[in-house]
Nucleic acid binder design. Structure first.
Length: 422
RNA sequence: GGAGAGGUGGCCGAGCUGGUCGAAGGCAGCCGCCUGCUAAGCGGUUGUGGGAGUAAAAUCUCACCCAGGGUUCGAAUCCCUGCCUCUCCGCCA
């Protein structure tokens, strides 16, 4: 959420940002109109309130001295009615203003490349050389089925399309990756947490999934709860409605959680294999930082995610998302894309973003500077470190052998207990 | 699921037969005094958000005693709803 005052005072900047994101700026016109009404009405109500408080005080004093108050009472009554009446309008304006504010996206950072869609994302760097195969590399789903470590058919019997059943060493690989990543992240100073997977509406609003992206969520209606699409939601909301002290910042968390996504609007996309599932595992990195540090923290967080790929010896590249591809809440995002030999493509395996104070304002996460009055919003960041399912894909495809077996990356062997799946 | 108790400022804790309560008192914190150090002691001070105001302050003002409604001229105090916490019983991984 943007700062009301900022939006009110810098409308042209906001419009410009919306245009860069290919957003329709009509929401914005409504906002300005309602915000003006809201502000005027607020002032009027406040003034009337002051008068009423004054009269009420007098009534109290006079009563105590046994004086007649019927005259004052009459005036107070009508003033009170006026206020009540105005407050219903004020309420409407406030709701409208908040509602339009909640669906206005974040303003991209000045360093974000301007572009229309993902085609105009900018490659920042590459790591590792794609392996040269002396045979035709197979898709991960073929490898998985041949090795009997992934069973798509039974998964669809149990739950439906876009689910998977991991078996034997496949299941163990999933678990090994979670443990490996968590251990590595913890060794870098991230605090491990294991949060709720079902969250309430306030949490979903806090990180920006609601109200705009309800169609992407699995929703439970009684009681009203939402399955998280990413641990970002649970973990960022740990500090919702809190005032942190300056000295406890920055805060680093890492969490493993399952994630749930409707994948509405992605019909026909990546229907085969593990790429796009309704349920998948992910290890997440989340940071709370002071505003002046947040972009350094973004670079560091991205490096931490990259380090996982490097230790697994998987070739990847880093891409800076352009304004047209940038997520709703993000100010800046780097995607990590891992090389998939069967597709001959780099595919997203991690997304690292700085949200600046966009989420913090929605979720009301503030901090207090030492010796200073008042509070400021923190900056929130997060990134996958990493998506487990997609890491499984990358390992199966990049480490496959001619005989159909898959070699286990060095760093995972202590977690797997074997060095090859065959 | 059944029966009770409760949610007040950084913490503890009064107030809850409606008015002078943003809220006693204590602790903690900050500033100053005093004491050759420390402790004790003394005086002062300390929340959040919005608006007006200022070069910036000062200052003025509205709101906030879990949340949302209601009664009333006026609510931390009365009524309703929701959420959460605790105790007992039942049930359960």
């Amino acid at each position: 959420m943007l700062d009301v005052r900022f939006v009110r005072e810098n409308p042209e900047q906001v419009v410009k940002a919306l245009e860069k994101r290919n957003y329709d700026s009509s929401v914005f016109d409504d906002f300005l109109k309602n915000e003006k009404s809201r502000k005027d009405m607020r002032e009027e109500v406040d003034n009337h309130r002051m008068k009423l408080n004054d009269i009420s005080g007098k009534i109290g004093m006079m009563r105590k001295q046994g004086e007649d108050v019927s005259q004052l009472l009459q005036g107070a009554k009508s003033l009170s009615d006026t206020i009540k009446n105005q407050e219903t309008y004020l309420n409407e304006y406030e709701v409208k203003v908040r509602n339009s504010l909640l669906i206005i996206p974040n303003i991209p950072h000045e360093s974000v490349p301007v572009g229309k869609d993902e085609k105009e994302n900018v490659e920042v760097r590459r790591w590792g050389e794609p392996r040269q195969f002396d045979f035709e590399p197979l898709n991960h789903w073929d490898i998985g089925e041949m090795l009997e470590i992934i069973d798509f058919e039974r998964a669809s019997k149990i739950a439906g399309a876009r689910f998977s059943l991991m078996k034997g060493l496949g299941a163990k690989l999933e678990r090994a990756l979670m443990n490996f990543m968590l251990d590595l992240n913890v060794s870098k100073g991230y605090k491990e947490v294991f949060p709720p997977i079902l969250v309430n509406r306030e949490s979903m609003t806090g990180t920006g999934q609601l109200p705009k992206f309800a169609f992407e969520l699995f929703i439970i209606s009684d009681p009203e709860l939402y399955l998280i699409p990413t641990a970002e939601v649970s973990v960022t909301n740990i500090h919702r409605n809190e005032i942190l002290s300056e000295k406890e910042l920055p805060i680093y968390y890492t969490a493993y959680t399952p994630c749930f996504r409707r994948e509405a609007g992605s019909y026909g996309k990546d229907v085969r294999g593990l790429i796009r599932q309704h349920q998948f595992n992910k290890v997440e990195l989340v940071k709370f930082a002071k505003p002046e540090d947040s972009y350094d923290e973004l670079e560091a967080l991205t490096k931490d995610a990259e380090d996982i790929l490097q230790k697994l010896e998987l070739p990847y590249r880093v891409v800076a998302l352009c304004t047209g591809d940038l997520g709703f809440a993000a100010s800046k995002t780097y995607d990590l894309e891992v090389w998939l030999p069967a597709q001959q493509k780099y595919r997203e395996i991690s997304s690292c973003s700085n949200f600046e104070d966009f989420q913090a304002r929605r979720a009301n996460i503030r901090f207090k500077r030492e010796g200073k009055k008042g509070t400021e919003f923190v900056h929130t960041l997060n990134g996958s470190g990493l998506a487990i399912g997609r890491t499984v894909i990358a390992i199966l495809e990049n480490y496959q052998q001619k005989d159909g077996s898959v070699v286990i990356p060095e760093v995972l062997r202590p977690y797997m207990g074997v060095d090859i799946i065959k």
